[in-house]
């Protein structure tokens, strides 16, 4: 539920200092965001340890996103250290900050302003027990991954944003009596929102938009084939028209959704995404526009025929 952004306010942790087990003045201090999933991951990784968790006010956003916005950042960290009086709580002067916080936390400045040395721990809280044995992170622990399961948990988030327009489009198409086109709208959205994230790493090429075009093309083929061979009581032109419309609209929708997915991926650079928008957005818009006009004309022709 937290991922869907439903009732977000219930997923805020009060910023401040928390204890686990029975910490002493020598126990380690871990820094976290006040986003439930970040905090819970840390707590379960540290289960059985005696330690402190310093929760920053990141407005309920996870460490990485918050670090990008600098709410998980140098100023908030220094401020929070003062507010909780960390100087008096522990004798040592070391904080373990998740590595992904480094985008917002300047370790040297934190030290200069608060006296605390920042040690960047592993990317994933789950690696903490292993890390704590030596305080050395392996190469693996320092890398962000974007595995199948990482991507699958994002599917509902992406779906939430596009569900309503897709439903409206399908309902309109169904109302004008074209159930195949309604199914095609659903299939296009399903391809971009579900199949694309799942197959991301196996689709050839690196650009998200091209990957989206490719996988959308695969989805479009049966619809185009059906239009071409299935609509036997229509004229040749209508069959051509529908086949073409499917081949234009479905890939453009999935390419757009794929391009949009760059926001959730953990490796796309701003420069690259900008280049993609610049290169492919006009093509996507043209394909979509021409396809939609074609569909409107075809449906209008059909309706007029019926009168």
């Amino acid at each position: 539920m937290a991922r869907l952004g439903v009732k977000r306010e219930r997923h805020l942790i009060e910023p401040g200092l928390y204890t686990m087990g029975k910490p002493t003045k020598e126990s380690p201090v871990f820094v976290s965001a006040n986003y439930t999933l970040s905090f819970d991951a840390l707590r379960s990784a540290l289960h059985g340890n005696d330690c402190y968790i310093l929760v920053l006010d990141t407005k309920g956003i996870n460490v990485w996103c918050a670090a990008g916005k600098k709410t998980f950042g140098t100023n908030e960290l220094v401020y929070r250290i003062e507010v909780v009086g960390l100087n008096d709580v522990v004798n040592h002067r070391t904080l373990i900050v998740p590595q992904l916080g480094a985008t917002g936390v300047d370790a040297r400045e934190v030290r200069a302003r608060s006296g605390f040395k920042v040690e960047f721990g592993p990317v994933r809280a789950a690696d903490l027990p292993e890390y704590l044995k030596t305080h050395q992170a392996t190469r693996e622990m320092r890398r962000v991954r974007f595995t199948l399961s990482d991507r699958i948990v994002l599917i509902p988030v992406e779906m939430k944003n596009f569900l309503i327009p897709v439903l409206i489009a399908s309902v309109i198409l169904a109302l004008v009596g074209n159930y195949t086109a309604a199914a095609a709208a659903m299939a296009a959205a399903f391809t971009g929102l579900v199949l694309f994230p799942i197959f991301l790493q196996w689709i050839p090429t690196t650009d998200f938009s091209i990957k989206g075009f490719l996988i959308g093309g695969v989805t479009a083929i049966p619809f185009a084939q059906n239009a071409f061979y299935g609509m036997t009581n229509e004229t040749m032109w209508v069959r051509y028209g529908w086949a073409l419309a499917y081949m234009l609209v479905i890939p453009s929708i999935s390419a757009f959704l794929a391009l949009n997915f760059t926001g959730s991926s953990t490796f796309t650079s701003v420069t690259g995404v900008k280049r993609e928008i610049f290169l492919y957005m006009p093509k996507i818009a043209w394909m979509f526009g021409i396809g939609i006009i074609l569909i409107i004309v075809l449906i209008a022709m059909k309706l007029l025929e019926g009168i």
Binding site: R3, G5, L37, N62, C65, D150, V153, L154, G263, S265
Partner: peptide, 8 residues
């Protein structure tokens, strides 16, 4: 980015 919890 409006990625509230959508990127982890």
């Amino acid at each position: 980015c409006g990625c509230d919890g959508s990127c982890s």
